Simulated scan of single mutants.
Amino acid sequence: MQYKVLALDLDGTLTNTEKVITPRTKAALQEAARRGVCIVLASGRPTVGIEPLARELELEKYGGCILSYNGGKIIDCRTGQTLVQHAFPADLIEPVCTFSRYWNVVPLTYDKNGIV
């Protein structure tokens, strides 16, 4: 086996312009996973935004990982175990909110269901 890990961005890489995994791509990735390649879905999206694609590829069956929040959280799809998690420092919440109000922008945060 030549490759052990295949890390893929989502939009325009894993998925087409309609944000769909084509049957050909799905079959190729599942075959790679069957052969032992660890498929990693990597994105700036929150975990909840990546999970449907991981389920579609059956990564819970074949193995693989979700790398969400630009690497802030990494989950093993087979076990559901969080392998890496970097939480936003609590002492920065107030300064970021103050900065956001000053510049009239809205900070976003997420919970397990999506954007709060």
Rank of each mutant, 00 (worst) to 15 (best):
M1A: 12
A7V: 10
D11G: 11
D11R: 09
T13D: 04
T15F: 09
N16C: 10
T17A: 11
E18N: 13
V20G: 09
I21W: 05
P23V: 03
R24I: 07
R24L: 09
T25Q: 03
T25R: 03
A27H: 02
A27C: 00
A28D: 00
Q30G: 00
E31I: 00
E31Q: 07
A32K: 08
G36Q: 04
G36F: 07
C38E: 10
G49S: 10
G49L: 07
G49H: 05
I50P: 06
E51Q: 14
P52A: 13
L53S: 14
L59G: 09
C65M: 15
I66A: 11
N70F: 11
N70P: 09
G72T: 11
G72H: 10
K73F: 05
I74K: 03
D76M: 02
R78V: 01
G80F: 02
G80Q: 03
T82A: 10
F88Q: 13
P89E: 14
P89A: 12
L92I: 04
E94Q: 12
T98C: 12
T98L: 14
T98Y: 06
W103C: 07
W103P: 00
W103I: 01
N104C: 02
P107I: 01
L108P: 00
T109P: 02
Y110I: 01
V116N: 15
V116Q: 15
